[in-house]
Design a binder for these strands. Structure first.
Lengths: 221, 221
DNA sequence: GATAATTTTACAAAGGCTTGACATTAATTT
DNA sequence: AAATTAATGTCAAGCCTTTGTAAAATTATC
């Protein structure tokens, strides 16, 4: 699975550097400004974001906060010409995963991207045989497509990405449905049930654990 | 919940810097060399490791690899006086989560530690042979799952977290049940009883002390 | 309008929690 | 020291909440 990187950067020269560095390694998409970025990001999630903190239309930190509202986990590397600590610390506090000061070397860039991808994918790759493809919205188990619907995909992806951690029903609702928990309904259970069924259908074990009174958790073997 | 950081560093001056930076924030333990470190690490796991890559007895990368063999998840920040990229890339490839070049600032150090702890999501506390895992809602005693229900989990967690302090029945009720104390009932006693039973079942002592007329207290050995 | 996806409804099954009666123990009074 | 009182320990029955499941109803998609 080729990994996708979104790059928010308005300087063409710098974009070319990225392009050269990532060629053949990762798929990239470039965005000149925050608005362009979010029009795509809201629909499709990359595996990593490289974010220039100095942009024309929107403050980089605002973008970062918005990203974190929409996606808690996608790795964000912020890039800045300012090498002062204030912006560095500020970025990390706002939920950035890493920081690079311009100018940076190709090696440093590649190493940082690699580490951050490794980190983000740690759970996924560890999740015994599952492969989550955010581009196609498919999840494969031992290379067999589970044939999930959108809600099922989001739900299982969330569970797998937080493998080992129990996710409260309220949070599941918020993350998958984007709403706050609404009263009593069997919706979540329904989707869990079909996930279990579909996983079993391709020979997978049922590693989705019910935590009574709390929520669900995906447990690795 | 205080988090524990292991620091492998042979330079006393640098150790003092860490000490000052982390004071009151995190609990720290220092190790001068790899052998010392592993003698402790094999028995007790910290929440994060800071590893100097230049050590007298063992190559830092060897230590890193050994850590990763033993623990896939604990965040490791490598620190090096060499600011060259080779060691940086090498460390990241060997499974380090972050990298800092000496000299680094306190702010940078704290920010990196914070981010890495956040990411690790290690929400686990250890005390007195107990391991409270908020991710799975399990409490282990000597690595054996007590098999607690939710209420039992919350109750024991509360008792352990306030070890040595007697907690009034009213407070127990409020914290675990989320309500104020309602008249006379044997509910709390029941749960205490099953806790004692379950702890005994895995060979633990009964360290839950009844304080007549007040409440209960967990006493550390 | 047909098909697929999602939510709702209704009910069953499980599991956990509470209750009340009674036993036991500790503190207090006589 | 015995008696009294109050608080806690214990047990099992039953209730209540939560979850599982199937099917129907609704909503979205093409």
């Amino acid at each position: 699975m080729e990994q996708l990187i979104y790059i928010v950067e308005d300087d063409d020269g710098v974009c070319e550097v990225y392009d050269g560095a990532f060629e053949g390694l990762y798929k990239t998409e470039f965005f000149e400004n925050g608005a362009d970025f979010f029009s795509v990001f809201s629909k499709n999630r990359p595996d990593l974001v490289i974010l220039d903190i100095m942009l024309p239309d929107m403050d980089g930190y605002t973008i970062l906060s918005k990203i974190r509202e929409m996606d808690e986990r996608v790795p964000v590397i912020i890039v800045s010409a300012k090498s002062d600590e204030i912006s560095f610390v500020k970025g990390l506090n706002k939920g950035a995963d890493d920081y690079m000061a311009k100018p940076f070397s190709i090696m440093e860039l590649l190493a940082r991207v690699k580490t951050n991808l490794r980190r983000a994918n740690l759970y996924v790759t560890k999740a015994d045989g599952f492969l989550v493809d955010n581009n196609t919205y498919k999840i494969l188990y031992n290379n067999v497509d589970l044939g999930l619907t959108l809600k099922e995909f989001l739900l299982l992806k969330l569970l797998i990405s937080k493998a080992g951690i129990t996710i409260e029903r309220e949070e599941l609702f918020r993350e998958v449905w984007g709403e706050s928990f609404v009263g009593e309904t069997r919706t979540i259970d329904m989707h869990i049930a079909s996930l279990r069924e579909k996983i079993k259908a391709v020979g997978g074990e049922d590693n989705i654990v019910t935590v009574r009174g709390v929520g669900y958790r995906y447990d690795t073997k």
